[in-house]
Deep mutational scan, measured.
Amino acid sequence: MASDGVVVEIGKVTGSVGTTVEIPVYFRGVPSKGIANCDFVFRYDPNVLEIIGIDPGDIIVDPNPTKSFDTAIYPDRKIIVFLFAEDSGTGAYAITKDGVFAKIRATVKSSAPGYITFDEVGGFADNDLVEQKVSFIDGGVNVGNATPTKGATPTNTATPTK
């Protein structure tokens, strides 16, 4: 695992066909100046998982989280898009600690492993708008004895992609 920078880890949970599971997305290594904004994309298989919603985690402190935390689910493109932009203008609602960034709610549709993997990152910046190093650890849903650990090695991303 990367020793510096922010680590975004997609949790690994267990479920069975027809059940709804909650998959946490963790941030670790949050910089001392916090995270003022970030955007990134995960990939998944809508034939295996139906993403039914995404909720902000406990490290989102904006009293009205829909102003700073936004997501979009595109089953036709097989992606989930995340956007966080601190909304106070003063840094008061920045992410300042490690913990759960988001909770992905999904219904298991198939007995195949439900991988959720890193696809791309736009950027991560602290309260001074300084770009942060970030790496990703894939996860998803274990169905029966299947284990979604494909790509469990962190993917280092030093520069934003478009």
Rank of each mutant, 00 (worst) to 15 (best):
S3D: 03
S3Q: 14
G5C: 06
G5T: 05
V6Q: 14
V6H: 08
V6N: 11
V6G: 07
V7D: 08
V7P: 10
V7G: 04
V7C: 09
V8R: 00
E9T: 07
E9W: 14
I10N: 12
G11L: 06
G11H: 08
V13A: 07
V13P: 09
V13H: 03
V13F: 04
S16Q: 07
S16N: 14
S16D: 04
V17P: 08
V17M: 15
V17I: 03
G18T: 10
T19C: 12
T19Y: 10
T20P: 12
T20W: 07
T20L: 06
T20E: 07
V21E: 14
V21C: 13
E22I: 04
I23Y: 07
I23G: 11
P24H: 03
P24V: 03
V25Y: 14
V25R: 00
V25F: 06
Y26A: 05
Y26L: 14
Y26P: 09
Y26R: 11
Y26C: 11
F27V: 05
F27P: 08
R28M: 04
R28S: 12
G29E: 03
V30H: 08
V30L: 13
V30F: 02
P31Q: 09
P31F: 05
P31K: 15
K33M: 04
K33H: 15
G34M: 14
I35D: 04
A36H: 00
A36F: 00
D39Q: 01
Y44V: 05
D45L: 12
P46F: 09
P46T: 06
N47I: 04
N47R: 06
N47E: 10
V48I: 05
L49R: 03
E50Q: 05
I51E: 02
I51A: 05
I51S: 07
I52K: 04
I52W: 03
G53R: 06
I54G: 02
P56L: 11
P56K: 08
G57H: 04
G57P: 11
D58S: 10
I60S: 10
V61S: 12
V61M: 03
P63M: 12
N64C: 10
P65V: 09
T66A: 08
T66M: 05
K67S: 10
F69A: 06
F69H: 06
D70L: 15
T71C: 04
T71N: 03
A72I: 00
I73V: 07
Y74I: 00
D76G: 01
D76T: 05
I79A: 01
I79T: 01
I79W: 14
F82D: 01
L83R: 00
F84W: 06
F84A: 02
E86I: 00
E86H: 01
E86Q: 01
D87W: 15
D87N: 14
S88F: 14
G89M: 03
G89E: 00
G91C: 04
A92L: 10
A92R: 08
A92E: 09
A92S: 06
A92F: 08
A92N: 11
Y93P: 01
Y93Q: 14
Y93K: 15
A94K: 04
A94L: 04
T96A: 11
T96C: 04
K97T: 09
K97I: 14
K97Q: 08
K97Y: 14
D98A: 12
G99D: 13
G99H: 05
G99S: 14
V100T: 09
V100S: 13
V100R: 11
F101K: 04
F101C: 04
K103H: 10
I104Y: 14
I104F: 15
R105K: 12
R105C: 07
R105Y: 14
R105E: 05
A106S: 12
T107A: 09
K109S: 08
K109V: 11
K109A: 09
K109L: 08
S110Y: 04
S111K: 15
S111E: 10
S111Q: 08
P113V: 07
Y115W: 14
Y115Q: 09
I116E: 02
F118A: 07
E120Q: 03
E120D: 05
V121A: 15
G123I: 00
F124W: 01
F124S: 00
A125W: 00
A125T: 02
A125Y: 00
D126L: 02
N127C: 02
N127A: 02
D128G: 07
D128I: 03
D128F: 05
V130S: 12
E131F: 01
E131P: 04
Q132Y: 01
S135W: 03
F136G: 13
I137G: 09
D138K: 13
D138G: 06
D138P: 11
D138E: 05
G139S: 12
G139Q: 11
G139E: 05
G139P: 02
G140I: 14
G140M: 15
G140K: 14
V141M: 13
V141I: 14
N142H: 10
N142D: 09
V143G: 10
G144W: 08
G144T: 13
G144M: 10
N145P: 12
N145A: 12
N145L: 11
A146N: 13
A146L: 09
A146Q: 10
T147G: 10
P148G: 03
P148F: 02
T149R: 11
T149K: 10
T149W: 13
T149C: 11
K150N: 11
K150R: 09
G151C: 10
A152M: 03
A152Q: 14
T153V: 14
T153Y: 06
P154L: 10
P154I: 06
T155W: 12
T155V: 12
T155P: 10
N156C: 14
N156T: 10
T157M: 09
T157R: 11
T157K: 12
A158M: 09
T159G: 09
P160N: 13
P160S: 12
T161I: 10
